Amino acid sequence: MKPVRSLARAMLSGIFVVSGVRNFANPDRLVAAAQPVTERVTPLLERAHPRIPTDTETLVRANAVVQLGAGLMLATGKFTRPAALVLAGTLVPVTIAGHPFWTNDDPAMKANNQIHFLKNLGLFGGLLLAAADTEGKPGLRWRTGHRIGHSRRSVQRAVRTARREARIAVRSAATARRLPG
């Protein structure tokens, strides 16, 4: 199954790697579309840290770098689950800014944006699956529950052993008192 996973991850990450490179090299073409989203995000960024750049072009480039880096991690199989989550996170503002079909009056433009919106929604679903994929190995939740169950059984065994040894000690003491000495 590993070759299928590797191929699927490479295919899923391709769009992010290519668009990350393109958008970093040429952010100007996206600035106008990204402006409404960045205007809403800017106050949050300024509250988080006052020195974070908040101009739209820089935010577009930052998103491009994140998509490129996380896309490469997903494609190469390094930190695939966190990379998929990061890509899913970057896809939300990109989709809202880039394909707002609900604002289009032109039917052709509305249909085009609707198709791209749904395409991104499908990518989002694929990224969520990639983020949840444990490659057939137990996930953290299962391992934690298993470890807790194992610890609980160990404690129960220790308690039973201690009780048994205490009973034996009591019998030995009682036997020792009965013996003439």
Rank of each mutant, 00 (worst) to 15 (best):
G139R: 02
H146W: 07
A130M: 04
Q156V: 10
S172K: 14
S154N: 06
S172Q: 10
A131V: 08
R164F: 13
A158F: 15
S151E: 14
D133N: 14
A176S: 11
Q156H: 11
D133Q: 13
A166S: 05
V170T: 04
R163N: 08
A162T: 14
E165T: 04
Q156F: 08
R152G: 01
I168V: 01
L129P: 02
R163S: 11
S154E: 03
A131L: 10
T134L: 06
A169E: 04
A130D: 01
A131Y: 14
V159K: 15
S154L: 07
D133E: 14
T144N: 02
S151K: 03
G149V: 15
H150P: 02
V155P: 07
A130W: 02
A173G: 08
E135S: 15
A132V: 10
T175I: 08
A169Y: 06
A162F: 03
R167E: 15
V155D: 07
W142H: 05
L127I: 00
G149F: 06
V170R: 14
R152H: 03
P138T: 01
G139P: 05
T161S: 12
R141A: 07
H146Y: 07
A169C: 02
A162D: 07
L127K: 00
I148L: 09
T134I: 09
R160D: 09
V170W: 04
I148A: 04
R171T: 09
A162Q: 10
R157Q: 13
H146K: 10
D133W: 12
L140F: 01
R147E: 10
R143E: 13
S154W: 09
